[in-house]
Nucleic acid binder design. Structure first.
Length: 933
DNA sequence: ACGCTCACG
DNA sequence: GACGTACGTGAGCGTA
C-alpha cells in the first residue's frame, strides 16, 4: 500500500449509502431533533452504522481505502433503454427526503469519501470502482446486501451484509440465484424485478431462470435454442419475449465504465477530524453517539443542548421583541444578505401578508421573515396608495421590490430540503406560495405544535399563543385595517405601519417554535405531531386547491324552487296563525304558539325565550297541530336555501369554477378536521329533499366522483379499546352489529328481528360512544326515562367491559389531565375535576375523545398515504367528511382507484396499531356526489 | 356579539 | 334526592 496509489495488498471497502439510509430509516422510529422537530431518525441510524463500521474494523479484513457511494439523480442511461425503469418506485416518505443531504454531510464529517455522480446510479459507480481496484491487484468488499450487486462477486471481490454482518461470497450468490456470480445477470434478465420495474420474461421467476441457464449455459445460448424447450408455454414465452429479455439484461448489467474524476488512492482511510465530527454530531443532538465518539477519539465531548446555538440564549440574554428594529427590505442586496443568513442558520420563520383571507384568490402583499429573536424583516411587495382615502389612486407605492424577483430569490431557500420553514398556520402561506409556483418544504407549524400539546386547553391562534407563552401582546390587525364597513385591505396599509406588524408575526412565530419544539418530546407528543399533524399540511393544501366542481345552474334552479315553496308555506302559516309575522324569528313564533294560541310547552334558557326547536315543534305536530308542522316544513326549506343552494353558489371560484373549502387542522378538540368557507362536511344527506343538493356536486366530463367511507369505525374502535369480546367477534364475523346487540340484550334471534328492536339497540350503541345517560336515550328514542335507563342497565350487564373502559378513561383523565388515542394523540381534559353540571359534560367528552380521536387519526393516516398510493392513477382526493373520502377520477380508472384507496384506508391503522377488529370500507361511484355516496 | 336552530359524522 | 345531560363541528339568521 502506498499513500499515493492503490495496488496489491490494498483493501477497498465500498459502502452502499442508500442501503444504509433506508435500513436506518426503517429500523428506527420517526425520531426528530429535539430543538426543532427536524426529522433525524435516518441520519441517526446512518451515523451509528458508519461509526460502528469505522471503529469496529480491525484485523486482516480492515480496509485501507473506503468510500460511501450515493445515488445522484433519478434519471440514468437505463431510462433511455427502457423509460419505465424504476417507474414503480414509491415516492420517498416526506420525513426522509430532507435527511439525504444530511447523510452526505455526515459522511464528510466522518472524513470518509462521499461519492456521487450526476446521471449514474450508485451501483454503477460501485461496479466501476470494484473493477478498477480488482484490476489493480487489490481486494474489494462491497458493504451492501443488495442482490443487484451480487453479479460483482468473484475473484478479489466479495460483499458484506451490514445488517447480519455476514460475508456474501460465490456460495451465497449461488444460494440466492441458483447460479454463480458470472451468470447472475442472465437470471435477473429472465426473472425481472418488480421493484426496479425490470420486465424480464412473464411467468418466469428466479427458480425457473436458474434451471434454464444451468441447462443451456448462458442467456444467449438459451434464447438461440429456445425452440428446444420441452414445456410449450415456457418455450413460447422465451420466443415471444426474447427482445424484452435482452433489454432486461441491459438494465440489470452494471456499468464498469462510469467516468470518475478521482483516483483510487484518494480513497485512503483517514482518521476523523474530531472537531468537525463532534460539531456535526452535537448539532444533530445525538447525545449518546457524541459521547461515545469523543471517548474513542480521546477528546472532551461538547455539550449537546436541546437548543442549538442560534436558539440557545438563556432567558436573561433573550432580546426583547423587535430589539434590533424591524428592517424593511427595499433592495435585492439586502434580501441576499437575509438569504445568506437563513442558509447559515438552517431555518426561517415566514409569514405572508395578503389582500384577503381566501387563499385561492388573495394576492400577495408582502412577506416577513425571522431568523432569530430580535431579527425580523418585512418585504413589502404590493402595497398601494390609498390609506384613509376611499378614493385612493390604487397606484403601487414606490420603494418595493418586484414580487417576481423576490420570489425567484427566495424559491431555492423555500424549497431547500435542508432549510426548515416555520409558520403559524403555514398551510395558508403554503397555498399562497404554491399559486406562485413555489412548493415549500420542509415546513413545521407552531399552530399544530400547540394543537398536539394543548388540544382541549385553549385555541391555537397566534395572538392567543403569543400572550400565553411569550407574554407578548401582538399588534391587533384592526389597528391597521380597521373593522366593519370602514375596513381596508392589507395592500392599502402604509408600508411603515405594515412592516412592524408583519415582522412581529414572523418573530412571534419563531419564538413560539423555540418554545414548543423541545416540549414535543418532553411531553411525548412528537410522534403525534410528526405522523398526524405535520404531514397533513401539504395533503390538505392539495385537496383545497383542487376543489370540487359544483354546478351553479343546478343550485340556482333549486333556489328558485325553494323560494316558491317558502312563499307558499309562509302564506299558509300566516293564515293558520291568523296574522302576519316573521316566520324565521323564533321569538315571534314562540309568542304566537305559546301566548296567543296557548299551546303547551314552557319557557327555556336564561333569555326567557320560548324554545321552538324541532323537538318541541315535532311534539306539538304529533298532538295534531298544523301550524308547528308547517313551520317545520318551512324551516327545512329555508335552511336548504339559505345555507346551501344560495350560499354555495357564492363560493364557486370564478377562476376555477369549483368550490374550494378550507380545512382547519387544529379546530376540533378530538383530531377531527373542520371544514369552513364553505363547510362541505355538513351537506345534507339524511332527508331525500336535502340529499338532492349533492346532485350539484359533480365530476368533470369523462370523470366520476368516487366516495369511500369507513363502516362503523367508531364502534369498531370502541370494541378494540374497551376490549369487548362479543363486539369484536361480531365485527370479525361481519354480522349486523346493531342486530347482534339487540339479540344479546333482549334475548331474541337475529333472524326476523323487529326493526324497532334493532333501532333501539342502534341508539344505545351510539349513545355509549357519547357517554350515555338515561335521559339522553329517552329523548332520542322518545321512550319513558325509566325504560331507557333499564335498557342501559341491561346493556352494561351484557357488555361489562364498557363500564370498565369508561371508568378507566375518566380516572386517567383525572390523574393526568388528558387522555390519549391509540395513536398517541393527546386531548387535554381541564374540566374533568370540575363540580356541578359541567362535570358530567367533561366526563362524557373524556369518554368520547379517545374513540372519536382514534377514528380521526386513522383517516388522517390514510390521507397522508393516499397520494403515493394513487399517484399512478388519473385521480385526485377532493374531500374528507370524518369517515369518508371523496375522489375525482377518470371514468376508466374508477375501479382501480377504489381498489387502491380501499387498501390504504383499511390498512391505515397499521403498522402503528394492530386493531383486533377489521376496518371495512364501502365504496360508490357516480356522476355526482348523491350517486357516489 | 350572542343565542337559536339545524346541517353533518 | 336533585340536578341537568347524549360526542364533535360550522353557518345563517334574528335580536340586542
Amino acid at each position: 500500500m502506498t499513500s499515493t496509489g492503490f495496488g496489491k495488498g490494498c483493501h477497498l471497502h465500498l459502502i452502499d449509502g442508500s442501503a444504509f439510509i433506508f435500513r436506518a430509516y426503517h429500523a428506527l422510529p420517526p425520531l426528530t431533533r429535539k430543538s426543532d422537530g427536524l426529522p433525524i431518525g435516518a441520519v441517526a441510524g446512518f451515523c451509528n452504522m458508519l461509526w460502528k463500521y469505522i471503529s469496529g474494523q480491525n484485523g486482516s479484513n480492515a480496509p485501507t481505502h473506503v468510500a460511501v457511494i450515493f445515488d445522484h439523480s433519478s434519471k440514468t442511461f437505463r431510462n433511455d433503454i427502457y423509460p419505465e425503469y424504476k417507474a414503480n418506485r414509491p415516492e420517498l416518505p416526506e420525513d426522509l427526503r430532507p435527511q439525504f443531504p444530511l447523510t452526505r454531510e455526515a459522511t464528510r464529517a466522518f472524513n470518509v469519501a462521499c461519492i456521487e455522480t450526476e446521471g449514474f446510479e450508485a451501483d454503477d459507480i460501485i461496479a466501476t470502482l470494484a473493477c478498477q481496484a480488482r484490476d489493480a491487484g487489490g481486494a474489494v468488499t462491497i458493504v451492501s446486501s443488495d442482490k443487484d450487486l451480487m453479479q460483482l462477486v468473484g475473484q478479489g471481490v466479495n460483499m458484506l451484509d451490514p445488517i447480519k454482518n455476514k460475508a456474501i461470497g460465490p456460495d451465497e450468490v449461488v444460494e440466492k440465484f441458483g447460479v454463480g456470480p458470472d451468470r447472475v445477470v442472465d437470471v435477473q434478465a429472465l426473472a425481472g424485478d418488480s421493484v426496479d420495474n425490470v420486465p424480464g420474461a412473464p411467468g418466469i421467476g428466479v427458480k425457473t431462470a436458474a434451471l434454464l441457464i444451468n441447462e443451456y449455459g448462458d442467456l444467449e445460448a438459451l434464447l438461440e435454442r429456445a425452440g428446444e424447450i420441452r414445456q410449450p408455454k415456457r418455450r413460447q414465452t422465451l420466443i415471444d419475449f426474447a427482445e424484452q429479455i435482452r433489454i432486461s439484461k441491459k438494465l440489470v448489467q452494471l456499468d464498469c465504465q462510469t467516468p470518475l474524476d478521482f483516483s483510487l488512492g484518494s480513497l485512503e482511510v483517514r482518521d476523523p477530524e474530531s472537531e468537525a465530527l463532534l460539531d456535526f454530531l452535537s448539532r444533530m443532538e445525538f447525545r449518546t453517539l457524541t459521547a461515545r465518539v469523543a471517548e474513542t477519539l480521546g477528546v472532551e465531548a461538547p455539550a449537546v443542548v436541546s437548543a442549538p446555538a442560534s436558539i440557545a440564549p438563556a432567558a436573561p440574554d433573550m432580546p426583547a421583541m423587535g430589539a434590533n428594529g424591524y428592517q424593511t427590505l427595499s433592495d435585492l442586496a439586502a434580501l441576499e444578505a437575509w438569504i445568506d443568513d437563513i442558509r447559515e442558520t438552517g431555518h426561517v420563520a415566514i409569514d405572508t401578508e395578503t389582500t384577503g383571507l381566501d387563499e385561492m384568490q388573495a394576492g400577495l402583499v408582502g412577506i416577513s421573515l425571522a431568523v432569530r429573536p430580535g431579527d425580523a424583516c418585512y418585504i413589502p411587495l404590493a402595497h398601494v396608495e390609498g390609506e384613509g382615502d376611499l378614493f385612493g389612486s390604487g397606484d403601487r407605492l414606490p420603494g418595493q421590490l418586484e414580487t417576481a424577483e423576490v420570489l425567484e430569490a427566495l424559491k431555492p431557500v423555500l424549497e431547500d430540503p435542508a432549510i426548515l420553514k416555520i409558520g403559524q398556520n403555514v398551510k395558508y402561506d403554503w397555498k399562497i406560495l404554491a399559486r406562485h409556483g413555489i412548493s415549500m418544504a420542509p415546513v413545521t407549524d407552531t399552530m399544530l405544535m400547540s394543537y398536539a400539546l394543548n388540544a382541549g386547553t385553549h385555541n391555537h391562534g397566534m395572538d392567543e399563543l403569543a400572550e400565553r407563552y411569550l407574554g407578548h401582546k401582538c399588534i391587533p390587525i384592526k389597528e391597521l385595517i380597521g373593522s366593519g364597513k370602514a375596513q381596508i385591505g392589507f395592500a392599502q396599509v402604509a408600508i411603515d405601519k405594515a412592516a412592524p406588524y408583519a415582522a412581529e408575526d414572523a418573530e412571534v412565530t419563531l419564538r413560539l417554535w423555540q418554545h414548543f419544539a423541545p416540549l414535543l418530546s418532553s411531553e411525548r407528543v412528537t410522534t403525534a405531531y410528526e405522523t398526524l399533524e405535520r404531514p397533513m399540511i401539504p395533503v390538505l393544501a392539495g385537496m383545497e386547491m383542487a376543489g370540487v366542481k359544483v354546478n351553479g345552474d343546478t343550485l340556482k334552479r333549486m333556489s328558485n324552487a325553494f323560494a316558491q315553496k317558502m312563499a307558499q308555506l309562509e302564506e299558509e302559516i300566516h293564515q293558520l296563525a291568523g296574522e302576519k309575522f316573521n316566520v324565521g324569528s323564533p321569538k315571534q313564533l314562540g309568542e304566537i304558539l305559546f301566548d296567543k294560541m296557548s299551546l303547551s310547552g314552557g319557557k327555556q334558557g336564561k333569555t326567557g325565550a320560548y324554545s321552538t326547536s324541532a323537538d318541541v315543534l315535532e311534539d306539538l305536530a304529533a298532538e295534531g297541530h298544523d301550524l308547528p308542522a308547517r313551520i317545520l316544513d318551512w324551516r327545512q326549506v329555508a335552511k336548504l336555501k339559505s345555507t346551501y343552494t344560495d350560499a354555495l353558489q357564492s363560493h364557486v371560484n370564478p377562476d376555477t369554477g369549483r368550490v374550494h373549502t378550507s380545512y382547519s387542522i387544529a379546530g376540533a378538540q378530538t383530531g377531527r378536521l373542520a371544514s369552513t368557507d364553505p363547510n362541505l362536511q355538513n351537506i345534507p344527506v339524511r332527508s331525500d329533499e336535502g340529499r338532492r343538493i349533492r346532485e350539484a356536486f359533480v365530476a368533470t366530463p369523462g370523470h366520476r366522483l368516487v366516495s369511500l367511507d369507513y363502516s362503523q369505525i367508531e364502534l369498531r374502535i370502541l370494541a378494540n379499546v374497551a376490549d369487548i369480546p362479543a363486539l369484536k367477534q361480531a365485527f370479525r364475523d361481519g354480522i349486523d352489529i346493531h342486530a347482534m346487540t339487540a339479540s344479546q340484550m333482549f334475548h331474541v334471534p337475529v333472524e326476523g328481528m323487529d326493526p324497532m328492536v334493532r333501532r333501539q339497540a342502534k341508539a344505545i350503541n351510539f349513545g355509549v360512544i357519547y357517554g350515555i345517560s338515561g335521559y339522553g336515550l329517552s329523548r332520542n328514542l322518545r321512550i319513558p326515562r325509566a325504560e331507557a335507563q333499564a335498557f342501559i342497565n341491561t346493556y352494561f350487564e351484557r357488555f361489562p367491559e364498557i363500564r370498565v373502559y369508561m371508568d378507566k378513561t375518566v380516572a386517567d383523565a383525572k390523574e393526568h389531565g388528558f387522555v390519549r388515542t391509540l395513536f398517541g394523540r393527546r386531548i387535554n381534559t381541564p374540566g374533568i375535576n370540575a363540580s356541578g353540571p359541567a362535570a358530567g359534560g367533561a366526563r362524557r367528552a373524556a369518554i368520547n375523545a379517545p374513540i372519536q380521536g382514534a377514528a380521526a387519526d386513522i383517516i388522517r393516516r390514510a390521507m397522508i398515504r393516499m397520494h403515493a398510493a394513487i399517484r399512478h392513477l388519473p385521480a385526485k382526493m377532493l374531500l374528507q367528511v370524518h369517515d369518508e373520502l371523496v375522489f375525482e377520477v377518470e371514468e376508466s380508472a374508477a375501479e382501480d382507484l377504489i381498489a387502491a384507496a380501499r387498501q390504504v384506508m383499511e390498512a391505515a391503522a397499521e403498522p402503528a396499531v394492530k386493531l383486533s377488529v377489521p376496518l371495512v370500507v364501502d365504496a360508490g361511484i357516480g356522476e355526482n356526489w348523491a350517486e357516489a355516496h
